[in-house]
Simulated assay, not measured.
Amino acid sequence: MKKSHLLIAFALLASRVSAQSNSSTVVQAGHNNEAYVEQVGEQNTASQNQKGNLNQASILESGMSNTARQQQQGVSNTASIVMDLSNGATALQTQKGNNNLATADHDMTIGISEQRQTGNSNMATVHQQYGLATAYQEQIGNHNTASSDQAVLPGNEQISKQYQYGDYNEASITQGRFDQYALQLQNGNHNKASVNQYYDNNVSEQYQYGNYNEATVTQLYSGVNKALQVQQGNYNVATIDQDAAFNNTATQRQRGNRNQAEITQGYDNEATQTQEGNNNEARIGQGNDNEAWQRQIGNDNTAVTQQASHNSSTITQVGNGNSATVIQAIP
Rank of each mutant, 00 (worst) to 15 (best):
Tyr130Pro: 10
Asn288His: 12
Ala171Ile: 02
Thr325Trp: 00
Glu276Gly: 06
Arg283Thr: 15
Thr145Asp: 10
Arg295Asn: 10
Leu7Cys: 14
Ala11Asp: 13
Gln72Val: 02
Val17Ser: 15
Asp241Thr: 12
Ile330Cys: 10
Leu185His: 11
Glu276Asn: 11
Gln56Thr: 15
Arg16Val: 11
Gln164Gly: 04
Gly188Met: 01
Val203Lys: 15
Ile110Cys: 08
Gly210Asn: 02
Asn278Met: 05
Ser21Ala: 04
Leu12Pro: 08
Ser312Trp: 00
Ala46Gln: 05
Tyr163Phe: 10
Ser172Arg: 08
Gly88Ser: 04
His5Met: 13
Asn202Ile: 00
Asn169Ile: 02
Val27Ile: 14
Glu276Phe: 00
Glu214Pro: 04
Val237Met: 09
Thr103Glu: 11
Gln231Cys: 07
Leu132Asp: 14
Asn144Leu: 02
Pro154Ser: 09
Ser65Arg: 11
Glu170Cys: 00
Gln20Leu: 05
Gly88Arg: 03
Thr302Trp: 05
Leu228Ser: 14
Leu101Ile: 12
Ile59Leu: 09
Thr218His: 13
Asn77Cys: 05
Thr272Trp: 04
Gly233Thr: 01
Asp268Tyr: 11
Asn55Ile: 07
Asn236Glu: 09
Gln95Arg: 08
Asp107Leu: 06
Gly30Ser: 09
Tyr212Asn: 14
Ala329Gln: 14
Ser47His: 12
Gly88Ile: 01
Lys51Val: 15
Glu114Phe: 03
Val304Arg: 07
Thr78Asp: 04
Thr264Arg: 06
Met123His: 12
Gln73Ser: 14
Ala182Leu: 09
Ile140Cys: 02
Asn98Ser: 13
Arg255Met: 05
Thr25His: 10
Arg295His: 11
Leu85Val: 04
Leu153Trp: 06
Asn259Thr: 03
Gly319Arg: 06
His143Ser: 15
Tyr165His: 09
Asn122Cys: 03
Asn257Ile: 00
Val224Ala: 15
Arg283Glu: 14
Asn290Phe: 05
Asn269Asp: 06
Ile112Val: 08
Gln139Phe: 04
Gln254Asn: 09
Thr314Ser: 10
Tyr199Ile: 14
Ala104Val: 02
Tyr136Cys: 03
Asn301Lys: 02
Ile8Tyr: 06
Ile8Ser: 12
Ile81Cys: 06
Ala261Asp: 08
Gly285Asn: 09
Glu262Met: 12
